[in-house]
Amino acid sequence: MAGNFKLKIVTPSRSFFDGDVEMVIIRVSEGDMGILKDHEPVVSPVAIGPIRIKNVDGKFVEAACAGGFMTVTDEQTTIVTDAAEWAHEIDVERAKEALDRNRNRLDSDDHEVDVVRARTSLNRAMNRLRITGIDI
């Protein structure tokens, strides 16, 4: 059995999560990374994607993460992100509107569109909808 470790997830507006966990799976630039107790120390950028947390009771919970960075030390794993949301916190209609708006921007012939910003917003909206279980 791997054991438990301390996980903190913080955003500019709140402490999103602070507790003991068995495992966390988070999206980094190279793909998904799993963290267990006694993981090698690491600092890594975090990509837009889900955060899957295996609680000490062995059950997984999932949240949407808007990107940021992560540090893993002997004492704890800390994820700092612009935004993190549980599925029940997500405004589905707002996420659908953002998805449609950014798809339209990317499909337009307007050369003034900030493509990087539109793609990032599109990815955030898609991630938020996936967390709620909505097919996109």
Rank of each mutant, 00 (worst) to 15 (best):
D57T: 05
N123L: 09
E89Y: 05
F5Y: 14
D74C: 07
I9Y: 09
R119G: 00
M126P: 00
D110S: 10
V92M: 03
E30Y: 13
V72A: 09
R124S: 12
A95R: 03
M33R: 09
D20N: 14
A64D: 10
V46F: 06
V46S: 09
I9G: 08
M126H: 02
R52Y: 11
V43P: 00
S13F: 02
D135L: 13
P45R: 14
L7W: 03
R52M: 10
D74Q: 15
W86L: 05
G58F: 04
T73V: 07
D74I: 07
V10E: 13
F60D: 05
R105Q: 13
G68F: 03
S121F: 01
V10F: 15
A125T: 05
I136A: 12
V43A: 15
S13R: 06
R117L: 10
V56L: 08
R101V: 01
H111V: 08
A47W: 10
I79P: 00
A125L: 02
E93A: 07
S29H: 13
E30F: 15
K8E: 14
D91T: 04
D32F: 09
R119C: 04
G58C: 03
I90Q: 03
D57V: 07
N102A: 01
W86A: 01
I131V: 15
R124G: 08
V42D: 00
S44G: 08
M1W: 11
E75N: 13
Q76I: 00
L129G: 01
N123D: 12
S13D: 12
R119E: 14
D114Q: 08
H88V: 01
E75D: 06
I131Y: 03
T78A: 03
A87Y: 07
D110T: 06
H111K: 11
T77I: 09
E89K: 08
D107C: 02
G3K: 13
M23S: 14
K6C: 05
V43R: 02
T77D: 05
T132Y: 02
P12M: 11
